[in-house]
Design a protein around this nucleic acid. Structure first.
Lengths: 210, 210
DNA sequence: TTCGCTATGTAATAAATGTTACGTAAGTAA
DNA sequence: TTACTTACGTAACATTTATTACATAGCGAA
């Protein structure tokens, strides 16, 4: 089953021999919603490839304050891990399972070896960096140029795409933590968005109308 | 002279044969302070390697609003360019010469070729990505967790390191543009920092005391 | 010197966001 | 049902940042 998933999600970018090797050396792991996969300051010994689910990548200031940077989805890897592993430094981010997720963890040594021996792996790494770079730029844009109400709406719309449903199952407090603000601010802005007929609010639920 | 610089700045990371090839295919260019090297939406055909000087990398929202992301220094390359070139997309950033700078521009095709054929180039690219990733994370931190007065002081201290002098030659308006705020705000906060004996202000000059 | 330009100082005000405090409503378990 | 917990609504206020408007200071050119 797990083997099937690796083929399914990665055959378009990684070649057959590499996938075989991944199946041999990779460690398969399952995480439940809200499980912490990697935390800040934790040393990294594995590169995760996401087989199914969705992972939230957060920047933490170390004292409980977080900020959502972006989401990882099936078929992707955590470029942060790459950067960290290569420099054998500690993780500068926190990775949390957004929903139940299935991963295969590649020991760092192989990542290094493959980078020099396998062209498809090189391309995969490069492509990952590219994608993440653009996501980081977008995050910077959002922080620098947008006001909280715009950021909130963008966040909600992004979740709609992620869950493929405009009925979101979320609490104000959770949103506040992802956007690094307070619950009161989020409640206020959500109410404002509701008045503008862009969303509908009910307990534990937000329906996105736009 | 130019050849000397390439050796000097890159021999520790790139091997001899590659440096020779760079000297053959690279285009040498000089930029004066405040010259725009790459602008937003401009297609990229070259990867720049910085031989001397310093380059400011800014994110622009397209309508005149900018935000400083980080500085490039001698011996470094613009990872944004890599990301853009690989995806053959247009530049998402603006690069401006902070001081007079000397570059060697590598046509994209070679960058691709070397990536698969030369180990030292691969390592260089990977290392660049790593460095830039961390800088982007730091930028996100700054935006998300710091207030303007802290950001301002951090900006000033960074310039002190960059110029290796605590007497900075700068105007309030310039700082405001880099930090994406208004001149009035910067003047106000600078005055505040002066009252806290952290800086001394005079026309076109700021002396950093901490 | 005087004129004119640019950079800076600062007040007044507005808008956005953060904080505290408390009330109420929806769900849950006894 | 009652009691309890959790999520949400909202007022009142503080702080931070943005905006407008205008004054003054430094400097160079004529």
């Amino acid at each position: 089953m797990a083997n099937e998933l690796v083929h399914q999600k990665f055959h378009h970018i990684l070649d057959e021999t590499l996938i075989k090797e991944i199946l041999q050396v990779g460690v398969f792991r399952h995480f439940s919603k809200d499980d912490i996969i990697i935390d800040v300051n934790q040393p990294l010994k594995y590169i995760p490839l996401l087989l199914s689910g969705s992972i939230k990548i957060l920047r933490g200031d170390g004292e409980g304050d977080d900020l959502l940077i972006y989401f990882l989805e099936a078929g992707e890897t955590c470029t942060m891990s790459l950067a960290c592993c290569m420099g054998t430094t500690k993780s500068k981010i926190r990775a949390v399972a957004e929903i139940d997720s299935y991963l295969v963890m590649i020991p760092v040594d192989y990542m290094q070896k493959w980078f020099h021996s396998n062209e498809s792996w090189r391309n995969f790494i490069l492509e990952s960096y590219q994608t993440r770079f653009n996501e980081m730029l977008e995050t910077i844009d959002t922080l620098a140029f947008m006001k909280m109400d715009e950021r909130l709406l963008k966040y909600l719309k992004n979740k709609v795409i992620l869950y493929d449903s405009n009925m979101l199952d979320t609490k104000h407090q959770d949103i506040a933590e992802d956007l690094h603000t307070s619950r009161v601010v989020i409640s206020r802005l959500l109410k404002q968005l509701e008045n503008e007929h862009k969303i509908k609010i009910s307990r534990n639920k937000i329906e996105v109308l736009v």
